[in-house]
Nucleic acid binder design. Sequence first.
DNA 1: GTTATAACCGGAGAAAGTTCCGCTTATTCG
DNA 2: CGAATAAGCGGAACTTTCTCCGGTTATAAC
Lengths: 208, 208
Amino acid sequence: MIKQGARRELPVVGRPPAERADAAQNRRKILEAASRIVAARGVESLSMDEVAREAGVGVGTVYRRFGDRAGLLYALIDDREREFQETFLHGDPPLGPGAEPLRRIRAFIDALVDRTEAQSTLLVMAEMDSPDARFADGAYAVYHTHLATLISQARPGTDAHYLADALLAPLAANLFRYQRRARGMDVDRIKTGLDDLITGLDTDHSAR
Amino acid sequence: MIKQGARRELPVVGRPPAERADAAQNRRKILEAASRIVAARGVESLSMDEVAREAGVGVGTVYRRFGDRAGLLYALIDDREREFQETFLHGDPPLGPGAEPLRRIRAFIDALVDRTEAQSTLLVMAEMDSPDARFADGAYAVYHTHLATLISQARPGTDAHYLADALLAPLAANLFRYQRRARGMDVDRIKTGLDDLITGLDTDHSAR
DNA sequence: GTTATAACCGGAGAAAGTTCCGCTTATTCG
DNA sequence: CGAATAAGCGGAACTTTCTCCGGTTATAAC
């Protein structure tokens, strides 16, 4: 995550040129305007035109800075959750390093459930206008790598890469919201269910 | 699945009034036109205007019949897969009744992977313009009920309802397509990974 | 066969996302 | 400081989805 839009085609070598000062300032203005609108009237009514107007820039600028609506929404999400990554990468056990892998997996998934609960509306909207955006976004990659590492420690020999995706999948914002709203499941029930799934990972399958 | 759009608000009691003959005919014409366009130029370029024109009706008619774009897409999907449901509900074992539950779960998930592979583009598009549509659609409900029943047989005492969602989640079209395209995973790898996850379900967790 | 009515029809137009392009400005290099 | 240039800017215009409503037609009751 962190940097959105802006550079879609990278130069063959070397880092992308730094953002010009005025551009960086516009990025900030846009992000703040978007945040203000979301706080005031919800994500549903966040139109690109309005963001541009509120930020005092043209629509074109919003698009140049963030690529598309999904990009803007993910930037908004990232902006709020950078510290979450800190917690599980370098924080205290059982979330951070120090605890045994399976314990960390559980703690991580639990924390992710809470995060999803808090941001579900924003996440659903973001997923909506760009189906791959969730996976292309850096945040997902970080979660995936983290989980895959832990899984391969807990159960060497399995396809940790795939299982990480599979464990993250039930936390897709649209399913999560459907379970919460339409199915009437509460957060604890979801956590318990996922714990059950994780427990299965700890099994020795070779004998089967 | 089966019936899309048309009746969003049901009468309190009794079945909805039958579709008028001309309306039913338009439904057919629209579905055929849409199918033709998809076959010719892909789902990406399926615009409601064009469907209407090709079917020889007004746009309003398309919307009255199918509710929205997602509704039309799901109708298209259902139209092609009604027999899939037959297979696992009443077909031969191990997919159909007769085999032991865990065996049937595996067979079902495997078959679903193949179905997702075949329809992924259509499914991704449908999920895109209406985040809950996948779950609201009758097909998902059928899968969910089927799986939940099998899970509660295989492992009484667990939250089969939740686990069914969790097992279906990695088959979300957008994740699936991302794994196939961006991650370069092949279908067998996905099946194997899911089998691994299912195996975990067979564990006795009470001792843990 | 006539009439009442509920369903249906078409297409104009509103709303929102995205693209395009001529003009402006920050930055760099001599 | 004074070009040269690459980056950035704004907003009009285009696209596509979806809504609305005045007029039409199928269906059923008499």
